[in-house]
């Protein structure tokens, strides 16, 4: 089952033919003196400094991206823990003030019998961010510590994470809509609480962590073992 990175419906997968199948070593562009422009995806000679089409600076490999990605991921993890502990909304209902965390908000939805909505919010606010952090952590560990996991599966997971990550924004949209509408003073009033900022930063940092990472680094190593599956 193939999944493309735009989330579009399935198209017939048409496998392109590898150029150097007769050679036993896997053909890496780097070894053939080629460099892909990260901005416009044009193939350039490795000797060039700038892309001939879009004039962006070319970089054969970004080795610093592993450290940058780790730093972003660790910061995001700390913020996500805070976002789960601290309240994300503050509700005043007939003078009674309640602090809602992400969890208690979902528990409330379950109690009022809104299961489909509870599942949507649970997926967007808890499942997706944690899966994203664990998945990226696994991917980075595989590069940094040489963990033998199928690269192909890792790459599929990475593309899913890249695509699904933005759905965490759902909770922030819902909070902003609620805050803007529910403002009837002591009677009924909703306000955002500190976890909202932490959660927004988690989304930003995890998306950045996935974006800066040069995924080609995973495939450069361990080429002697064949792990096409």
């Amino acid at each position: 089952m193939s999944k493309n990175d735009n989330g579009l419906p399935e198209l017939i997968p048409q496998y392109a033919i590898a150029a150097d199948e007769q050679a036993n070593e896997t053909p890496q562009g780097l070894k053939m003196g080629l460099c892909l422009c990260a901005t416009c995806k044009k193939v350039n000679a490795l000797t060039e400094q700038y892309c001939s089409r879009c004039h962006s600076p070319l970089s054969a490999r970004n080795y610093a991206s592993i450290q940058q990605s780790w730093a972003l991921l660790i910061t995001a993890t700390i913020l996500l823990i805070l976002a789960n502990i601290y309240p994300i909304t503050l509700l005043t209902n007939r003078g009674v003030v309640t602090n809602d965390t992400i969890f208690s908000g979902i528990a409330h939805l379950v109690k009022s019998g809104m299961f489909p909505i509870a599942i949507i919010v649970f997926t967007a606010s808890i499942l997706v961010p944690w899966l994203k952090i664990l998945g990226l952590g696994l991917y980075l560990s595989a590069i940094s510590f040489n963990i033998p996991i199928s690269k192909r599966k890792m790459m599929v997971g990475f593309h899913i994470i890249e695509w699904i990550g933005r759905w965490s924004m759902l909770d922030l949209f819902v909070i902003s809509l609620t805050v803007a509408l529910v403002n009837m003073g002591q009677l009924l009033d909703a306000k955002p609480a500190p976890a909202a900022t932490a959660f927004a930063l988690v989304i930003l940092l995890t998306q950045l962590a996935a974006k800066v990472l040069d995924t080609r680094l995973l495939w450069d190593r361990l080429e002697t073992h064949d792990d096409t599956n």
Binding site: A16, I17, A18, A19, D20, T26, P27, Q28, G29, L30, M32, L34, C35, L36, A38, K41, V43, N44, A45, K151, M155, F158, H159, T215, R216, L218, W219, D220
Partner: peptide, 16 residues
Amino acid sequence: FKAVILCRSCDFVIRK
């Protein structure tokens, strides 16, 4: 260059 593309994720050389 025209006949060949590189995979943006893994740098595999592929005939276009």
